[in-house]
């Protein structure tokens, strides 16, 4: 049970050597539990994308180990990694990166077919995921006929199609307006929690903090502080524990967006 989820132990990534050596990620450790949504924030050049690429087995760490559901990714041969990425990871990119020649349904069904399922099964699975994401009416559309929000939902569907353990999202809201960005991330959280899948998001966008269970701040390749998030039990709003209104009932601490919610909770 301890092996489930993502475990990152003392990972360092260096580029170059000698005078030109750059340490992009420095001695980072991290555990992401099944069903957890972790948001990694930080300034440009802080090593966020490098870390994400290592988590996704696209880049080997110089030191340390990365384990997903008991599989030590950092020790695997390059030959085995494509299959691991296909079956255990879902990737969501800033630019959506859909295949422009394929329609929405085929874009999503494509990774499923690569795992060996029949075309029919792949398309059935893709239709189900796309419908869940509210794109049931866009199945035959080419990507260039979709809005930014719709494209990102197709990318999410593609990331989910093989039911991966971990979904990695690189600046997923960067090309979306605030309402579409937030709505899309909320949808991602809802679906992944329902399926008990972990999500690691790398983003500059502070507006999506409330969809995360944990927010980590990366600076100069190191985690500086962790922002613990909590949900107001009255209004359902996500709040940062630090600085939020707190209340204790039956020995347990709860966090609220405002005193009104706390008073209402304690009185109930």
């Amino acid at each position: 049970m301890d092996n489930l989820g993502l475990q990152v132990e003392r990972v360092t990534k260096r580029f170059g050597s000698g005078d030109t050596e750059v340490v992009a990620v420095r001695d980072v450790s991290l555990v992401v539990n099944p069903g957890e949504v972790v948001l990694i924030m930080g300034p440009s050049g802080s090593g966020k994308t490098t870390l994400l690429l290592m988590l996704g087995a696209l880049l080997k760490p110089t030191e340390g180990s990365i384990t997903l559901d008991g599989l030590e990714l950092s020790a695997m041969s390059e030959r085995k990694l494509p299959d691991v990425r296909l079956r255990h990871f879902g990737f969501i990119f800033q630019d959506f990166n859909l295949l422009s020649a394929l329609n929405v349904l085929d874009n999503v069904a494509f990774p499923a077919e690569l795992t060996g399922v029949s075309r029919r099964t792949a398309r059935e699975k893709a239709t189900a995921v796309l419908t869940e994401l509210g794109l049931g009416h866009r199945l035959r559309f080419p990507p260039d006929k979709l809005s930014g929000g719709e494209k990102q939902r197709v990318a999410i569907a593609r990331a989910l199609i093989n039911d991966p353990t971990l979904i990695l999202a690189d600046e997923p809201t960067a090309n979306l307006d605030s309402s579409h960005g937030h709505e899309t991330m909320r949808l991602l959280r809802e679906i992944t929690q329902k399926r008990s899948r972990s999500v690691v998001i790398v983003s500059h966008d502070a507006r999506i903090k409330d969809i995360a269970d944990r927010v980590l701040w990366l600076e100069d390749g190191q985690f500086m502080k962790a922002i613990e998030m909590a949900t107001d039990p009255i209004c359902g709003m996500a709040v940062e524990r630090e600085g939020a209104v707190a209340g204790v009932r039956e020995g347990e601490t709860y966090y609220f967006c405002a005193k009104g919610c706390r008073d209402e909770f304690l009185a109930s």
């Binding site: 996704g56 696209l58 494509p82 299959d83 691991v84 990425r85 296909l86 079956r87 990871f89 990737f91 990119f93 630019d95 990166n97 295949l99 422009s100 990774p111 690569l114 593609r158």
Partner: peptide, 18 residues
């Protein structure tokens, strides 16, 4: 022209052979 798409396909786990 599709360099980026092929790169993304490699990222999601499509082998060179494919």
């Amino acid at each position: 022209a599709r360099r980026k798409e092929y790169g993304v396909l490699k990222a999601i786990g499509v082998r060179n052979r494919r």
